[in-house]
């Protein structure tokens, strides 16, 4: 058995030497007077776009700007929790919309976005996912130090909706904005909510050819973070 052989060998080698202590404190990480400003500059340095929607009612115009820049009419939403967390109002066209393994989406002709959103749904299929241009998800946390957002897979949503499209928009509440990674990792408990957690910073990129930077290799080419006030509420409509 490999297992016992390896463990036995490892144990034998390890004994007899003194065991250095595990350091109890993390080294210092930078703090900022204005976390949002640092977040913005770090995100931009990583090739992402920062949109400020902290004043009430500005989420709509922020999203409209994204729709215009990307030339897209349809938004795919990472799941029910996005609406809950950011108090986004919607009406359901489709009674099955929130059932498992369905993709939630809304249409926006001529780039104009209206609240409440009119939500449709369609079956969750790989071939269809690959054709989606724009996905919107919600961040568990943001990290000012590096302009990073934390995406967690949740019940009812998956890994691919944010990984495949050409553009990805993340909504981040300002109360979830942390200073640095030393604030993040001790509170992160991956596995407790979903099977996978991803730290995302800017668009997908490569520098594999002559160290020349290119955005959008396998993942999104455009990446937006919209910062919101956590108590901000678009007027909520109860689903019919």
């Amino acid at each position: 058995m490999s297992r016992s052989a390896i463990l036995e060998r490892v144990r034998r080698c390890g004994t007899g030497t003194s065991v250095p202590e595990l350091p109890q404190k993390l080294p210092e990480f930078p703090c900022y007077q204005d976390a949002a400003a640092q977040f913005q500059s770090a995100l931009q340095a990583a090739g992402g776009t920062f949109l400020d929607a902290r004043s009430a009612g500005t989420l709509g115009s922020a999203l409209e700007r994204v729709l215009q820049e990307t030339g897209v009419h349809e938004i795919y939403w990472d799941g029910h929790h996005v609406f809950e967390k950011h108090a986004i109002s919607y009406t359901l066209r489709d009674p099955q919309a929130f059932s498992q393994s369905r993709l939630l989406h809304s249409f926006h002709y001529r780039g104009s976005l209206q609240f409440p959103l009119l939500l449709n749904s369609r079956p969750y299929q790989l071939q269809h996912l690959a054709k989606i241009s724009l996905a919107v998800s919600s961040a568990e946390y943001g990290v000012a130090e590096t302009g990073t957002v934390v995406h967690e897979v949740r019940p009812g949503s998956g890994r691919l909706l944010t990984a495949l499209p050409a553009a990805h928009v993340v909504l981040l509440n300002d109360s979830d904005l942390l200073m640095n990674h030393a604030d993040l990792f001790p509170v992160l408990s991956p596995g407790s909510t979903g099977s996978m957690t991803t730290l995302i910073t800017g668009p997908s990129r490569t520098a594999d050819v002559e160290k020349t930077l290119v955005m959008g290799v396998h993942g999104p080419q455009r990446f937006y973070v919209i910062l919101m006030k956590s108590d901000q509420a678009e007027k909520r409509h109860t689903p019919p």
Partner: peptide, 10 residues
Amino acid sequence: RITSYVNLIN
């Protein structure tokens, strides 16, 4: 400062 993705898989 950090890479585009850090995947944590459980």
